[in-house]
Computed example of a mutant assay.
Amino acid sequence: MEQPAATYPVHGPSLRKRRMALGLTVQEAADKAGISRSYLQRLETGIRERMGPKRYTRLRTALNATNDQISPPPEIPTEER
């Protein structure tokens, strides 16, 4: 059986965009996810960029989001000259 990742990367601006689209305040979203307001703020501002699996799942559920909606965008390789 496959083990869950130790931590999951999250993209702060995407979290904020998703939360705001649902019309939730930081406190309301944090309460729904069972995390502190300050923890969610640190995620949204990019101070924290990774979450443990339990918190990640709760936040994703609270925001009714997919992994792609709150994960960092894929890096686009730059051309070397």
Score class of each variant (00 low, 15 high):
Tyr39Trp: 11
Leu63Tyr: 08
Gln69Met: 13
Met1Leu: 15
Leu24Trp: 06
Asp31Tyr: 04
Ser14Ala: 15
Asp31Thr: 14
Arg50Gly: 02
Met20Ser: 14
Gln41Ala: 11
Pro72Asn: 05
Lys17Met: 09
Ile47Trp: 04
Glu80Ala: 03
Thr45Gly: 12
Gly12Cys: 12
Ser71Trp: 03
Arg60Ala: 11
Glu44Val: 00
Arg19Gln: 08
Gly12Arg: 13
Lys54Thr: 14
Ala62Val: 07
Lys32Ala: 10
Val26Gly: 07
Gln69Ala: 14
Tyr8His: 12
Thr57Trp: 02
Ala62Tyr: 10
Asn64Gln: 12
Ile35Leu: 04
Met51Leu: 12
Pro53Ala: 08
Pro74Gly: 03
Glu2Ser: 14
Ala62Trp: 11
Arg81Thr: 11
Pro4Trp: 04
Leu22Glu: 05
Leu59Ala: 00
Ile35Glu: 02
Leu24Asp: 10
Gln27Ile: 06
Met51Lys: 04
Ile47Gly: 09
Arg37His: 11
Thr25Met: 02
Ala33Asp: 08
Gly23His: 03
Pro72Gln: 09
Asn67Ile: 01
Thr45Phe: 05
Met51Ser: 05
Pro72Glu: 08
Val10Phe: 07
Leu63Val: 10
Lys17His: 13
Pro53Ser: 08
Ala6Thr: 09
Pro74Cys: 03
Pro77Met: 01
Leu43Trp: 00
Ile35His: 03
Arg55Leu: 12
Gln3Lys: 15
Ile70Asn: 06
Gly23Pro: 07
Leu40Lys: 09
Met1Lys: 15
Ser14Glu: 02
Ile35Trp: 00
Glu44Gln: 03
Gly52Ser: 10
Pro4Ser: 05
Val26Ile: 13
Met51His: 02
Arg58Asp: 13
Tyr39Cys: 04
Arg16Gln: 11
Leu63His: 10
